[in-house]
Computed example of a mutant assay.
Amino acid sequence: MTTKDRSLEALGLDDVPAKKPLTYPGRPTTEPSLLTGGELLQLDVRPLRLGEWYVEEQEAQQRLDEALADLGQVGTGRRHPVIAVGSNASPGQVAHKLTRLGIPATVPMVPVRVQGIGVGCSGHISPAGYVAGTPYVARGAETTLVVTWLDSTQLKAVDDTEFPDYRRAILPGDTFAMTMPSGERLGAAYIYFSAHGVLADPVTGQPRPGGGDQSELLASLLADSARLRDLLGPDPATWVRRAGGDRSLRERGTRIFGEEGWVLPQTDFLPYVDESAELRLYDDLPPLDDSLPYRV
């Protein structure tokens, strides 16, 4: 029986923005999937909880929770749903973050409709040299974002890649409706938001759209600021090479964002900040509630 190659390379999802900054945010999964090592297996959506969906695996189907158990991994009910806004929606980036630490890259990844959240650009330059995405509260908006289901070890590893530039909040489902492809609603989910604020468009004063082509974003920022051109120009390739290799340049570029008057503060998420994440209390981190991850 011939089976389709589900490797990240074959699917064109193996880009790692941490290694190739101009590919940021990487290519997200566009369908419910199970990332397992270097493969991305399709999930057959059922009108049931996530763990009861089926994994389209080789010659046979298997329930997701059963597949996770066979891989020696915890089931969905003991995992933490985390909304990915930037490269954490990219299977290649997630696999890189986890496997480089010796952590199994076995992660359910599901596109979910999220209300009240927009995607903008963080008001800082990341260690890799790119300008990363960040969520912001946008009442009335509906955005499809990938939710990753991380176990406690994976969550801590991702936290370590995000802090101190990002903080983790818990979004309540009664304020930010989150609808699965099955029609079920998440009761809550984690989300990382930038501690540096959101970049504003210099003309409109509204958040610059994030999640698009990194080269276009950097070219636009260079065009809007002579000081950035002098520091990191003349082009996006030069920007990421210089910024990625010199912390002081990143810090100076970040300061220029603020001095140009581009940075909008992020305060709307503060009521939802996860204090346990701030204190790094992971030993017995429970799911968000006893019925996680759903509330219909």
Score class of each variant (00 low, 15 high):
G212W: 01
R6N: 10
R242S: 06
D290Y: 09
Y282A: 09
L101P: 02
G133V: 07
G245Y: 08
G26H: 06
H96D: 11
S126P: 00
W149R: 01
G140C: 12
R46Q: 15
P236E: 06
D289F: 15
L228A: 04
L171W: 09
P25C: 04
R167K: 14
V16Y: 04
A219I: 04
L11F: 05
L292D: 13
E260A: 00
D44M: 13
T175S: 13
P47L: 08
V119N: 00
D268C: 04
T204H: 02
Q154Y: 08
P265W: 08
P172T: 12
L264P: 01
V85Y: 02
L11K: 06
G123P: 00
P236H: 06
E184W: 11
R229K: 11
G233I: 04
P207M: 09
A177V: 10
L217R: 02
Q58C: 11
T238E: 10
G129H: 03
D14M: 05
W239Y: 01
R255C: 11
S291G: 09
Y136L: 09
T23I: 04
R63H: 10
T30Q: 13
V131S: 10
D230Q: 14
A157H: 06
H196S: 05
R46L: 14
L228P: 01
M1Q: 12
R49M: 04
T76K: 05
T153C: 04
V55K: 00
K97M: 10
T204W: 02
F163L: 11
T30A: 15
V82F: 13
L264C: 06
C121E: 09
G183M: 05
S122D: 05
A60C: 09
P286K: 04
T99M: 15
Y294S: 12
R185Y: 06
A237E: 14
Y136F: 15
D289N: 14
I83C: 11
V55Q: 02
A200L: 12
R255G: 13
P202Q: 01
T204P: 02
R229Q: 12
W239E: 02
R49A: 08
Y192Q: 08
E9Y: 09
P91A: 14
A188D: 02
E184M: 13
P25D: 06
S33I: 00
A60R: 13
Y24G: 06
P271T: 03
S194P: 01
P104M: 02
A69G: 00
E216M: 09
V85A: 03
A69K: 10
P91N: 14
Q73Y: 11
T204G: 01
